[in-house]
Design a protein around this nucleic acid. Sequence first.
DNA 1: GAACGCAATTGATGTTTATCAAGCCATGTA
DNA 2: TACATGGCTTGATAAACATCAATTGCGTTC
Lengths: 230, 230
Amino acid sequence: MRTQDLDLVRALPLFKGMADPRFDELFRGAFLQRFPTRVVLISEGERADFLHVVVEGAVELFAAHGGRETTIDIIQPVTTFILAAVIQDEVYLKSARTLTPAQVLMIPAEAVRGVFGQDAMFARAVVSELAQRYRDVVRELKNQKLRTGIERLANWILQNDALSGGKGTFSISSDKRTIASLLGMTPENLSRNLATLATDCIVSEGREIRIVDRDKLIGLASPDPLIDRS
Amino acid sequence: MRTQDLDLVRALPLFKGMADPRFDELFRGAFLQRFPTRVVLISEGERADFLHVVVEGAVELFAAHGGRETTIDIIQPVTTFILAAVIQDEVYLKSARTLTPAQVLMIPAEAVRGVFGQDAMFARAVVSELAQRYRDVVRELKNQKLRTGIERLANWILQNDALSGGKGTFSISSDKRTIASLLGMTPENLSRNLATLATDCIVSEGREIRIVDRDKLIGLASPDPLIDRS
DNA sequence: GAACGCAATTGATGTTTATCAAGCCATGTA
DNA sequence: TACATGGCTTGATAAACATCAATTGCGTTC
């Protein structure tokens, strides 16, 4: 593992405040692994063996049931995932697979739980992380229950633009079918919804999306600080 | 506050392990209040001032956006709610109102955060609680994204029957319109979906629901341990 | 450059769900 | 008993969304 990557991990809110010996203990049994695209890293229902950290690439969290499948989140570097299952020593509720070639750091769950009991700063950071994630899922649930498909798309575009600097242009980071699933619609309807927005307020060319009438887009989206991560 | 109620609160997983002096500190500024039906206890967007504990009655957590409104959870005694906002010292993402006359214990948020920093057992319990809640919301998100309305209803019936002892009969604890909102459908569609199930596998009379063909109901519901709280 | 594979789009159609508008029924009240 | 009230149900219609099928577009391979 490159030192700069390790530094990035060390600087994560989750690990930032903890004592060096504890950090070392945590990483003694950890290993960094490279994966090609579309490799399943964890499957829902399995016991939580490792805390995962995406160091490079993108990872999709998804869940399946009765022939259907839905994307729950797309994890960008540098971020941990499935902390709750690790802490609770329970089974994963979501599966994970790489969307791109990726580097993932895997920390044994037992070590995480061990250090959690010893390092108060770490325990505190775990609480913050869990609380933050909890609130993010609540936001997503509100997004799904209170908005129509095209409203979710409009907000997603506004958020992605903001995340990439608010330049009014950004590039979709993965398959459109994955985005459709994340937004809770079929790929066909994502196409149609993009086409609808394209008559008014955006230009959609391949994976490039450009906002041409931001006010109109905002009017359609009705962004809400109690739903959208600001 | 009656001693037996206090004992119930003291016995909650969240407070069980903490030292007596800390518990006393927590409850020094706390107060128990009675509310009639349909009183709004907290409003989304407000700063989190109190950790709430439903001691008696039922409380609905809901959220509104753009003229729409949805029920997120129904809290039965004895349970805490909005812990995440309190710990993070942030605004509430959900509103809360009583569904019945209720008794609610209110613990100042500052005291919770204070004790959290001093009592390791309490901090640990907070983590467990948050992790559990996080997983519950993830389950609900999967429920919403992976199931149709009638499937959600069928599973809701199975779960409520199980919660009330698995006798095959139970009584709906609140307005049907609230249940409809919780299940992510309109009251009209709840009626229709109940009528559909009533041709096959249940009897629905007023607020009483009786399961007459459990196998058929299970076949329709496809309950899943990774979605439904077991 | 031709053929292929695959994601994305487009169109036609069907299902699910919401909305609007009555009507029903139990309950409480005058 | 008559009457209002509010929750619930039922029916008709419309919107949102999914499915199926065919086509387009684009990058890859040969």
